[in-house]
Design a protein around this nucleic acid. Structure first.
Length: 617
DNA sequence: TTAGGGTTAG
């Protein structure tokens, strides 16, 4: 045990910190007073000092050892100096760490990687990168310890250009076969959304360890088809790599994106069978997975089973009820959270406000919005205003929504104006839509979705010239809408459809089913709304295009492939259009099937010709 | 003596 006495050593710092490296760091004095340890043996065995440093629990102990090894000359020993440097970085005392580092007469690869890593782990990417540049300029070879830190900086800053430069350094030094370096590169490319490069690197790895697999599974879930992520997980297990809880949380996340209930159950079984403890991160991911797979009750069961809940857990449960339109239950969870002593954060309020909006709880939403700062010291940002625009807009209070937007000095983004325009579409308010659309097109001139939304508003009002102008603008700017995709899980298999898709083996039967449904639905009162078709073609062709919307293909397949009495669950990557919403309502009436639609993380339960969200989708 | 992957919204 180290004992502090009331004596002091003077520890010289080695050199003055250079700008701009520490422009924001606290000033470091040339000497630091440190309590002395008179009983320190005068041994010159480096192992002794390394062990003492390992036992050092705080910065005072570390400074004390620093004083001792300076006094007896042991600081000249690289092992001792590096360990001391490492301990300073572990304590996040980077000013003193860098002072020691820059004063070291001899530095080896360990010294450099500890210093670069120290900065990066503390989130000081500027100095981390500056130190790495210093290493390169000094002609030192970067190694497999230093490079992952530098690649991590490129990943977090999403700086693909720099990432590629570092990749070049990796190749130059023949380090691409190192698992740490390669997994970091895969992760960097994936986070920069260059998924093909990530996959190529992964496929070329000679021996893939658990972390490499986890990174690639997460990358697939994020950038490609989440189904592919689950296939990759199966391959990993087949190859004898056993997952840990981090890998499981990644897989659970992939299931959440996919929204496939059967897969969720399989993953849950796997987690139980392999006795993974329901820690706060895995548990929270599972709440989110069940909620996004349409089973809010299972999400709640997981929530109730968790012993430790953090603000993310509570927020996930609030969001879960919000997705399903259970606003009151979301509010109950919020109140339970407060009683348990957990403070809400900005995301908690986004979840809560959306829950109010999706359930039509206008008064409650307004109350929570105004309490954010007053009662919980959470400042409203543009996303909270977006929730409020959604809340007021859905209720038809468009003027109030616009007034609220205009009352804030916050910079408005495309999400905010998009929510406003969406509300204008629901209520057919062309004048207000025109008023805000320029702000939206200025912010995101490349997003075809905005042009389509405005075209639909014009079409609904019969303003064909304006609609045609929008379409011409899209052509001029060479814009194409992101394809809408709908998928459905049947017998543990995902079936995906795009508009006009004829690639499914049951294609003929699916189109015949839609034709037969259309005939029956029209008798029941359904009127196809061709305003949701943008193309300049005659009405009959428009009807054909409308009939091949991906949602309808998935519903028809669901009716053909599942037994009566089973709910049909479909997921769409974009919002369901107004015509499909109406189509599904009528299908639920004439077939007496429950249909659950997930679009943009909101669930719509269709039953007996009604939808849980009313007509505000 | 130094290293990696996981949770909520949009």
């Amino acid at each position: 045990m180290l004992k502090l006495k009331n004596q002091t050593f003077l520890v010289p710092n080695h050199g003055i910190l250079r700008l701009p490296l520490f422009s924001t760091a606290a000033a470091v004095t040339n000497t630091t007073a440190v309590p002395a340890q008179p009983h320190f043996p005068r041994t010159l065995d480096p192992k002794f000092y390394v062990n003492v440093l390992l036992c050092s629990r705080n910065i005072f102990h570390i400074r004390q050892v620093h004083a001792q090894v300076t006094a007896n000359g042991m600081l000249q020993n690289l092992t001792v100096a590096n360990k001391l440097l490492y301990m300073y970085t572990q304590q996040r005392v980077l000013g003193e760490a860098y002072a020691l580092f820059s004063g070291m007469e001899e530095k080896d690869a360990v010294s450099w990687s500890v210093m670069v890593g120290g900065f990066v782990k503390a989130g000081d990417y500027t100095n981390g990168f500056a130190t790495f540049r210093e290493l390169i300029r000094g002609g030192v070879s970067p190694d497999n310890y230093t490079l992952p830190f530098v690649i991590r900086v490129c990943r977090d800053l999403m700086d693909l250009q720099m990432g590629k430069l570092v990749h070049g350094i990796v190749l130059k030094h023949g380090l691409v076969s190192d698992n740490f370096v390669c997994a970091a590169l895969v992760d960097m490319y994936a986070k920069c959304r260059v998924i093909d490069d990530a996959r190529q690197l992964f496929d070329n790895m000679q021996s893939r360890d658990l972390v490499s697999w986890t990174v690639m599974i997460g990358a697939c879930a994020e950038c490609r088809n989440a189904d592919e992520a689950l296939v990759l997980f199966d391959r990993m297990v087949d190859e004898g790599v056993l997952p840990d809880k981090v890998a499981m949380a990644t897989v659970v996340n992939a299931c959440a994106k996919l929204g496939a209930m059967h897969k969720a159950r399989l993953v849950d079984d796997y987690i139980c069978r392999n006795k993974f403890s329901l820690d706060v991160i895995l548990g929270t991911a599972m709440i989110d997975m069940y909620a996004k797979c349409g089973c809010v009750d299972s999400a709640r069961e997981i929530f109730d089973r968790m012993h430790v809940k953090n603000v993310i857990t509570w927020s996930a449960m609030i969001a879960a009820y919000g997705y399903h339109g259970h606003g009151r239950k979301a509010i109950d969870i919020f109140e339970m959270m407060l009683s348990s002593g957990v403070s809400p954060n900005a995301i908690t309020f986004i979840s809560l406000l959306y829950a109010c909006s999706h359930s039509g709880l206008i008064e409650e939403g307004l109350r929570f919005f105004s309490s954010m700062w007053d009662e919980y010291a959470v400042r409203a940002d543009v996303k909270h205003y977006t929730c409020m625009v959604d809340l007021l807009g859905r209720a038809g209070k468009l003027d109030e929504a616009l007034k609220l937007v205009e009352s804030t000095a916050l910079e408005k983004d495309e999400g905010l104006w998009g929510a406003f325009l969406g509300a204008c579409r629901i209520h057919g308010n062309v004048d207000l839509a025109k008023k805000v659309v320029n702000s939206l097109l200025e912010l995101q001139p490349e997003n075809a979705g905005h042009y389509v939304l405005l075209s639909n508003i014009y079409a609904r009002e019969g303003r064909w010239k304006d609609m045609s102008k929008m379409r011409d603008l899209m052509t001029q700017r060479k814009l194409k809408k992101i394809p809408g995709l709908t998928w459905i899980e049947v017998d543990n298999k995902i079936h995906q459809f795009s508009v006009g898709d004829r690639s499914h083996p049951w294609s003929e039967k699916i189109y015949a089913m839609i034709k037969s449904l259309n005939e029956k639905l029209e008798l029941a009162g359904y009127v196809p709304d061709t305003n949701f078709v943008l193309h300049d073609v005659d009405e009959e062709v428009k009807l054909g295009m409308l009939s091949s919307h991906s949602e309808k293909l998935a519903i028809a397949f669901g009716l053909l492939a599942t037994a009566d009495g089973t709910p049909i669950r479909i997921t769409k990557n974009l919002r369901v259009c107004g015509d499909c919403h109406s189509f599904i309502k009528f299908v639920s009436a004439i077939t007496q099937r429950v249909i659950i639609v997930r679009d943009a993380n909101r669930f719509h339960h269709f039953k007996e010709g009604a939808c849980s969200c009313g007509d505000y989708w």
